[in-house]
């Protein structure tokens, strides 16, 4: 149910991003799509992808906003140091509170939550013959992921070669 609401929201935000004339509004609509995708990953029980999506989204949003706004943004700092200090301290306190709550829930070292981890640890040597369990996981059990990663690198190299290539001979 939440997933459908998120999907409809993403579709509407994407349409707004295409149709909007103002570049900055368009960029912000794209950012809304990204954050909704992040929430969708969370609902689909993939927190690692959600974290990656969040980080990439924030970076892309900052770069795109910086690229669309030409003039420098005014930075007001004088005369407001009390407010700035207290808001900084408040955010640090909130961050520490949530970090404490999250760290309490971490499983102990060597006691993984997921059952599949125990299977990897017990059977990787007998099933793959590789003593390096990390290599056994990335190149045997989860080799399909590694193929995707290699494709990402390949695409990056092709993109850089295509952008930086010499222009056609016009002499």
């Amino acid at each position: 149910m939440e997933l459908h609401i998120l999907l409809i929201f993403m579709i509407f935000a994407a349409i707004i991003a295409i149709e909007e004339k103002d570049l900055l509004s368009s960029v912000i609509a794209v950012g809304a799509v990204g954050f909704a995708l992040c929430l969708a990953f969370l609902i689909l029980k993939a927190p690692d992808l959600a974290i990656t999506q969040l980080v990439v989204e924030i970076l892309c949003l900052i770069i795109l906003i910086r690229a669309t706004i030409n003039k420098d943004l005014p930075l007001v700092i004088e005369g407001r140091w009390i407010f700035n200090t207290f808001s900084t301290l408040g955010f640090i306190a909130v961050f520490l509170l949530f970090a404490w709550l999250a760290l309490k829930e971490l499983p102990g070292f060597g006691e993984p939550i997921m059952a599949v981890v125990k299977k990897y640890l017990q059977e990787s040597v007998s099933k793959t013959g590789s003593v390096n369990i990390v290599t056994a996981v990335i190149l045997d059990f989860r080799a399909y992921d590694t193929l995707g990663e290699a494709t990402v690198l390949f695409t990056a190299v092709i993109g850089i070669m295509a952008i930086l290539r010499r222009p056609g001979r016009k002499k």
Binding site: S130, V131, N132, A136, L139
Partner: peptide, 8 residues
Amino acid sequence: GHVSPGGG
């Protein structure tokens, strides 16, 4: 890569 840390 398969016997010591490291890899491709």
